[in-house]
Write a protein that binds this DNA or RNA. Structure first.
Lengths: 117, 117
DNA sequence: CTGAATCGTTTCGGCTGCGTATCATTTAAG
DNA sequence: CTTAAATGATACGCAGCCGAAACGATTCAG
């Protein structure tokens, strides 16, 4: 069964979630960084630089740089693939999992407070 | 009645919507720009620079610059308040309304395709 | 009328991200 | 072995955004 969501609800939820992330004091992730992070946490591993670049339709250095900056926040980490040492495997971290969890709770809460329109 | 949405649904929807915006070829808006745009279109006017800065918990020049760049895309426009010429009123545009409408349709569609988890 | 307050803009130096091209390392092919 | 291909990282110049401070225009207070 599909998740029911009308146009006004979708927009309002999207706005409130964005607003929430902007208003808090954590550094804002760019839309690209957010997409990378969520893809790593929600889609099946393994995740490589090249794979993420293809998934996001974006150049490889974009991924490398995003991993650098989000790595600094400990939101995810890198490891060489021992099977094929050309590859880098992107891995989840405890901090990243917590971040994602908080984000999910926030969205659920915003949706819960929303009236059917 | 509240909109029901569980944690996994919230995350998946958020990821897919972000991914969609990143993958398409339009220039990405920053999270701040997105918040400004949606606030202008979803919350009651009038919208001023100062008001938006307070709403987003952000410095005034952030708003001025975002209005400059989104104005270049014709996503919104500015007008002097004739009642109090210190104020600038931020106004909606046809292009902006279409952009918002497409965004909403996208989110609704992504939600519709999503299974209950 | 004059000085203070308000509002949006601009300036400044600095930081981050971008795309293209190139690089070093590793693996695969002949 | 030698060469080509694949992968991620780096160099480069350039765009855009940042926060803090200063500015001009307008309105308000006394």
């Amino acid at each position: 069964m599909a998740l029911e969501l009308n146009t006004a609800q979708a927009l309002t939820l999207w706005q409130k979630a964005n607003l929430h992330l902007v208003r808090d004091d954590d550094p804002d992730l760019s839309m690209r960084q957010m997409s990378i992070l969520l893809t790593v946490y929600l889609e099946a591993p393994p995740h490589t630089v090249r794979g993420l670049a293809a998934r996001l339709n974006v150049a490889k250095p974009v991924i490398t740089r995003a991993l650098d900056s989000m790595g600094r926040y400990n939101l995810l980490s890198r490891r060489r693939d021992e099977k094929d040492k050309r590859n880098v495997l992107i891995q989840r971290t405890v901090e990243g999992a917590l971040f994602i969890e908080r984000l999910a709770d926030t969205i659920v809460e915003l949706a819960r407070k929303q009236e059917h329109i």
